[in-house]
């Protein structure tokens, strides 16, 4: 599509492709939610997926991760099928997708991030506990490690989810609206962690709603509305033209310096 030439011109073109999506089509009933998505995400970017409600942003992430079954298409992570590369990928679901009254503590939730590398039956031990505590410290939640999760604020719950993904020590992070319903302090804390991840060479893909903060937070962006509208570096493609194409109205983003 129209984004291809831009990708080639980019300075990161020498980099490896972390995530490659081919012909991905997803439908819940008859109507397609995602139509024929081709996507290449280079290694080491911090990418926002933007688009209106119902554009299929969460669906895209869930289909890439195999939570939803697509009608057609394939996903590869570093040139191998996703199923073989799961340990390279971490997921931060929407905060509202779980019951926070579940009887467990913050530390326990973070420990769940180690379950994947442990595999079946084996229980987390000292090593996993240490890693989980470190992740909690990284998100500034160490003091809350023994808290019952329902007694945490929305922002704190989001940080716990982030810590659970960090403990997986993955190369690619998928996050579904991590800034939803969190206060400014938490938002800054989270974005700083995401930028650190990028600095460490990790790839971070975020479903994002606030268009105003896209240029400030991200260096890569994908416009999505059932079809892929555009994908590429923020500085090249984050413009009124693509926003209008995606949101269907004459959208003017005011990038004020």
């Amino acid at each position: 599509m129209n984004s291809k030439p831009i990708e080639k011109n980019n300075t990161t073109s020498a980099k490896k492709i972390a995530v490659k999506v081919d012909d991905l089509t997803v439908a819940y009933n008859y109507k397609p939610v995602l139509w024929d998505i081709d996507l290449e995400i280079p290694e080491g970017v911090l990418m926002a997926i933007v688009g209106p409600n119902g554009a299929g942003k969460s669906t895209l992430i869930k289909s890439i991760l195999g939570i939803l079954k697509p009608i057609a298409g394939s996903v590869s992570i570093y040139d191998k099928p996703y199923e073989k590369q799961r340990q390279l990928v971490a997921y931060v679901p929407q905060k509202g997708s779980v019951d926070w009254d579940f009887p467990t503590t913050a530390l326990d939730v973070v420990k769940m991030g180690t379950y994947g590398s442990l595999g079946w039956i084996k229980r987390p031990g000292q090593k996993e506990k240490k890693a989980s505590l470190e992740a909690l410290e990284k998100v500034g939640m160490l003091a809350f490690k023994s808290r019952q999760i329902s007694q945490l604020s929305g922002g704190q719950q989001q940080r716990i989810f982030l810590a659970r993904a960090l403990v997986q020590n993955a190369s690619i992070y998928f996050m579904d609206e991590p800034f939803q319903g969190v206060d400014a302090t938490t938002e800054i804390a989270i974005i700083n962690i995401l930028k650190e991840l990028r600095k460490a060479g990790k790839t971070v893909i975020v479903v994002h709603h606030d268009l105003q903060t896209v240029p400030e937070y991200f260096d890569w962006v994908t416009f999505l509305n059932v079809k892929k509208i555009a994908t590429g570096p923020v500085k090249d493609i984050f413009n009124d033209d693509n926003l209008t194409k995606t949101y269907g109205i004459n959208y003017k983003v005011s990038i004020q310096e």
Binding site: P93, F102, M112, G116, I121, R164
Partner: peptide, 22 residues
């Protein structure tokens, strides 16, 4: 007792459990 860990994580967050490869 054998599958305690798996039961627990499935009860709390089934989608996430899937992404871990279970």
């Amino acid at each position: 007792l054998t599958f305690w860990k798996e039961f627990k994580i499935l009860l709390f967050d089934a989608d996430y459990t899937k992404t871990l490869g279970f």
